[in-house]
């Protein structure tokens, strides 16, 4: 079983000064799995992802593809096949859509053919991006910016794609579209670690979930074993 785990996190702790945002969490992501970390705002979900991407100081052990990446510099992490699609559509507003995508392929910049193929794949997934490829990314609508962020994260063929709140601020229709796309991405072999406040939609596509509260996991397990109503009432404060 352990060999199937591509990401293994042990005793992860994130502190902002005296405040512990993440308090000794343990979790894993299996090969080709979709795993969601759910929880209310401020529960420590985003800090978890940022720690995995190496952006913030943290304690504990993070193993990705049998390699300890706890101390790896952030810019080296995408080279290993672990890519974070940041929250609030962290795109480069003053670069064109296509340049944003190209930068997603920065780690494979030597392999022009691979990049060409991947851009085609992304455009097949999100046709809107191809229509707007010359436009500055900052001029896109919220939904398009989210597509661009996901498309850009796919450009270097990650083994594990981490997404931070992809449903944030989108209309229900767009959320459905984005999550359908995530399903497609997963089917093509990419594992997904999702951080979401929108528990219902996240559970639709997840194999397993972790529910975070005050920096710790309150519940974890297979999606089908978790009763959504209890979850909603007890932990998500909806």
């Amino acid at each position: 079983m352990a060999t199937d785990r591509i990401l293994e996190v042990e005793n992860l702790t994130v502190k902002y000064g005296p405040i512990e945002a993440v308090r000794g969490t343990n979790f894993f992501v299996g090969n080709q799995e979709v795993v969601s970390i759910l929880g209310a705002n401020g529960a420590g979900k985003s800090s978890t992802l940022k720690a995995l991407a190496g952006l913030i100081p943290h304690e504990g052990r993070i193993t990705f593809l049998s390699k300890d990446i706890s101390r790896t510099e952030p810019y080296k992490i995408p080279y290993l096949g672990l890519t974070l699609c940041p929250e609030r559509r962290g795109i480069f507003p003053d670069l064109s859509v296509e340049d944003n995508l190209l930068l997603g392929a920065y780690t494979i910049r030597k392999n022009k053919n691979l990049i060409k193929g991947n851009i085609k794949k992304v455009y097949a997934l999100f046709q809107r991006l191809e229509e707007r490829k010359r436009q500055l990314a900052g001029t896109l609508s919220g939904g398009e910016q989210q597509m661009l962020a996901i498309g850009r994260a796919l450009m270097n063929d990650p083994k594990l794609l981490m997404l931070d709140e992809p449903s944030l601020g989108l209309s229900p229709k767009l959320v459905d579209f984005i999550f359908d796309s995530l399903k497609t991405i997963n089917k093509s072999g990419t594992a997904i670690l999702l951080v979401e406040q929108n528990a219902m939609i996240a559970m639709e596509i997840s194999n397993r979930i972790y529910v975070m509260q005050n920096g710790k996991f309150a519940i974890s397990g297979n999606t089908k074993d978790v009763d959504f109503q209890t979850l909603k009432m007890k932990y998500l404060g909806v």
């Binding site: 952006l55 810019y75 992490i77 670069l95 930068l103 920065y106």
Partner: peptide, 24 residues
């Protein structure tokens, strides 16, 4: 150039640039 675009990316958002694998 790739490097030039990477530099503009760092100028716009250093943290996001790191997520692309850019050595800011």
């Amino acid at each position: 150039t790739f490097q030039g675009k990477a530099m503009r990316a760092v100028a716009q958002n250093e943290e996001i640039a790191k997520l692309m694998g850019i050595n800011s």
